[in-house]
């Protein structure tokens, strides 16, 4: 199939983009296009205006400011996968990126596009939830920061108004010796996961866990953090993690059901993926990274 006709806009600056979003109706922002162009071709979406943000250099910056990594919305998945800054500070993101689509889609696909499209089983929004990312939103009415806990407004719905756009994502890295783990199950490598999990652990010199973050994705309409299980990990010895308890906590989360995958199967996978993610994080805790 072919895309229905639309008007094409290519702003070069943030101000131009803000102006277009204020003046146009039924407009869609085109980032990497690896989901949106497919949806256009299938006529699942028929915008009157397509606003291509690929020419806005200010959206494609990747930098460290103070203790925070700031990733522009248009930074491509390929760039993140090979950036030393990300490998050093956000290794769990690199591991997740290896599962995002394929080489040919990572060339164009962006972190901002993924985090605005919000497929429930997408890896990058889940990692943003795991890392407590802050989303900088901009528009004609000004800039505001949305914490990850407020970003997921509903199924494939980010906390963005029609006249706003995602400018950048800021992440504060965990300590240099944190443990990290990522696991997902998909029918084929590169497909969207059926269920995936991520885990971060920090411990003191004696091996007592001081900080923990856990996330499941693909289970419900948005990534799910497990605050109770995280709290239960803090204060326990890393060597004595209750994996059975963690798997049970994962299985007990809200699970969706669809034509291919039942809620019961998702729950079963959630337990296994959470176990694998935490096990990997445990193994990397307090280790020097190459």
């Amino acid at each position: 199939m072919k895309a229905a006709p639309f008007h094409f806009h290519q702003p070069a600056t943030l101000a131009e983009l803000a102006g277009l979003l204020t003046s146009l109706s039924n407009a869609r922002i085109l980032a990497g296009g690896q989901s949106l162009v497919a949806m256009l071709n299938l006529r699942l979406v028929t915008p009157d205006h397509l606003v291509d943000i690929n020419k806005i250099a200010d959206l494609a910056t990747l930098r460290q400011t103070g203790g925070t990594i700031e990733i522009g919305a248009m930074v491509r998945q390929h760039t993140l996968l090979h950036a030393p800054l990300i490998a050093q500070h956000l290794p769990v993101l690199v591991e997740a990126l290896g599962h995002v689509g394929h080489m040919q889609t990572r060339s164009r696909g962006t972190i901002g596009g993924s985090c605005c499209h919000l497929d429930p089983s997408a890896e990058l929004p889940a990692m943003c939830a795991l890392l407590d990312a802050a989303f900088t939103v901009n528009g004609a009415r000004g800039r505001r920061i949305v914490p990850a806990s407020d970003w997921f407004a509903g199924l494939m719905q980010a906390a963005l108004a029609e006249d706003e756009f995602l400018e950048s994502i800021s992440i504060t890295p965990w300590s240099g010796k944190h443990g990290y783990g990522f696991a997902e199950y998909a029918r084929r490598h590169g497909d969207y996961a059926i269920v995936g999990a991520g885990a971060l652990l920090e411990a003191d010199g004696e091996g007592t866990i001081k900080r923990a973050a856990l996330v499941l994705f693909g289970c419900d309409t948005a990534p799910q953090r497990l605050p109770q299980a995280e709290a239960a990990l803090v204060g326990t010895r890393a060597a004595n993690i209750d994996f059975a308890g963690l798997a049970a906590a994962a299985r007990a989360q809200e699970m969706m059901s669809d034509a291919q995958v039942t809620a019961a199967y998702r729950a079963r996978l959630a337990g296994i993926m959470m176990h694998r993610a935490v096990k990997a994080a445990q193994g990397r805790l307090n280790k020097e990274r190459p």
Partner: peptide, 24 residues
Amino acid sequence: CEHGVCGSCTVIVDGQPVRACLML
């Protein structure tokens, strides 16, 4: 497929392999 699944339309754009059906 023209929706980014089959890869048969892969071309190289500015040095990077991309799906020609997913780029305008």
